[in-house]
Nucleic acid binder design. Structure first.
Lengths: 355, 355
DNA sequence: ATGAAAGCGCTAACAT
DNA sequence: ATGTTAGCGCTTTCAT
């Protein structure tokens, strides 16, 4: 009555070895698929393993090999379809290569991100893919170099860090989109993002923690400036009041007497909110309001008007980051790569000249 | 030159102990936050830990405690906003309770799901939340009972399994929606899903592996039958040709001479595809085609017409599953719970009587 | 309150 | 080709 066979506790290599009448190391060699073993022993061990319902303890394996075959992925918000697609492509590549993914949401909050990274490192992940929430905070990532942990930055660079990074050409894309607005005759423009304000820098420039958004704003403003648009007509709308949410900022924007005639939305969630609010106010699109959105979200071709978008190669970015991470884990020592992917505009119906 | 201090390899409890001039076990007690230690020693150890940049190895910790503080989550497709929201709420609850989440995509494929579950068990997860792709396959989940691994089924029950499960009232909701169509005068209806056909059962009924979809079909058909709708006018459209994709099935449906006047879409992705194809064919909605969709996706209030949806309490379901799992891990031995959440219809503009 | 020693399940080095 | 031994970094007895 002391030791029931059916009990839950796990069957180990030692148990299998005993049952198969071989040494622990021989059983381990067969079960772990390494070293050399004879056909005969292999069969015997496998049979015993099956009989005892042996399952390898990957934790123990990781302990001794120093490889956990686990990757940490830290994104801003998995609910955002941009990250949904990214995570999908990342896990696809990683799983295909025998890695598992621990997912963490930073909620675009740096403290959460740092904690997540630390926990993941504690779990001995072999590598990390992170979309850093703040391009001015690097300590938690710098630390990784010391440890045996590869990193790839996804969608957002950290200028001061020399690590593999994949981004898209945010500034160029934003500039092009803005120029398209201006070419169509717009003189009152706005860029809208859900990013929370990071204050201003000494030179008076916005301090935008989210690097991709920061670069988009740069592109937007430089195009406006070049075209001689006044500052008050090249608005940058941030999520100024996190309590009220972005909706409040957009309400304010649309309710002002001289509201912009063209808006560049930093992502599809922002674009959707603009769309909703414009409809509620009976603001005719595109005649009374032109719109271009970053990210070719699925719904953008089904609205009336359909939405002109800047198509980010999200899956490709995800794939690249995963593949690059694997290369590093396998020991690649080439200089850090900084991969910039081109975005392309998909012209649909939401842009016209202001009426 | 033999042992550089700056080298990557990790600082262990033993290192900290040596540096602080205490025994390994004392250092471990302080660092692990268990047992009793004196104030003085505690300070000294923490100081040493900081000086040496000690980081606990959670793998080793898990090895000895038998708790990995890690949960496996297996969903059909993280790109689907339904699962995106679910994963978000699940990870939120789990993280708040000190657990991490390993995410796996089954791609609605049973073999992938089984492999994923096995890998996760190998990684010694404390529990699993899974949206099983196939309600007729249970072996991989039955096994978990023997092991020290809690399970909660999410969104899909497995009738033969007595485990904690959270679903929504799919059959009722589908029946109600169908009855609404019929009450509006529709006599040619269709239910469309991306699920792949599982053949027919002996009694001639559809064999639908995805349990939630199966129950929705039951509800749809029973409402049709009750209203005396002929079989050829209560179509169930599956993704019959996985190579061509669901789009092909929908094309066929819409191109047939006597196409349905009302469609119930099994999820928002299906609904979006129907919307796109209807627009392409200039099928006026709702006059020429009424539509109700499961899942209150964000874009459904921005189309023209806006889409009447069956709102699933996705976040609540996610939260419930995570909370229930934690209870089990903490040792709750109450009988398995089978939690059914009510869905509610949000009436918008996509339903009218057939013209 | 602290220390010494054993052990989690596996792989790695070194025999034979 | 197989066996023996010694760890990985931590927690957990059991002493003191």
């Amino acid at each position: 009555m002391k030791k029931t066979n059916l009990q839950s506790s796990s069957v180990t290599v030692a148990d299998v070895a005993r049952h198969a009448n071989v040494s622990k190391s021989t059983a381990a060699r067969v079960l772990g698929g390494y070293g050399v073993t004879s056909e005969k022993v292999r069969e015997r061990v496998h049979a015993s393993a099956k009989a005892l319902k042996y399952r390898a303890n990957e934790l123990a394996r990781s302990m001794t090999t120093g490889k956990s075959k686990t990757i940490g992925v830290v994104v801003g918000d998995i609910e955002n379809s941009f990250f949904g697609i990214a995570v999908r492509s990342i896990t696809d590549v990683l799983n295909a290569n025998g890695f598992n993914v621990i997912l963490a949401n930073s909620d675009e909050n740096f403290d959460v991100e740092r904690d997540a990274v630390n926990v993941l490192v504690g779990k001995q992940v072999d590598g990390l893919i992170v979309a850093p929430a703040n391009r001015y905070e690097t300590a938690h990532l710098e630390n990784l170099k010391t440890l045996n942990c590869a990193v790839v930055l996804f969608d957002r660079e950290i200028p001061s860090m020399d690590v593999d990074t994949v981004i898209s050409d945010d500034a160029d894309a934003a500039r092009n989109a803005t120029e398209a607005f201006i070419a169509a005759g717009h003189r009152r423009l706005a860029f809208v993002t859900a990013t929370i304000e990071g204050g201003r820098e000494d030179n008076g420039k916005w301090r935008i923690p989210t690097s991709s958004v920061g670069r988009r704003i740069d592109g937007f403003l430089s195009a406006c400036k070049e075209a001689g648009i006044a500052e008050e007509n090249s608005l940058v709308v941030l999520n100024s009041d996190p309590d009220l949410g972005l909706g409040a900022s957009i309400s304010k924007l649309l309710d002002q007497p001289e509201r912009p005639t063209a808006i560049l939305a930093s992502d599809s969630i922002v674009a959707l909110e603009i769309f909703k609010q414009a409809q509620k106010r009976d603001i005719e699109m595109p005649d009374a309001l032109s719109l271009i959105a970053f990210h070719n979200a699925d719904w953008t071709e089904v609205t009336r008007p359909t939405v002109t978008v800047i198509d980010q190669p999200v899956s490709e970015m995800g794939r690249w980051s995963a593949e690059q991470l694997i290369k590093r884990i396998e020991g690649s020592a080439e200089p850090a790569l900084h991969h910039v992917m081109k975005m392309k505009v998909i012209n649909r119906q939401s842009v016209t000249s202001p009426k």
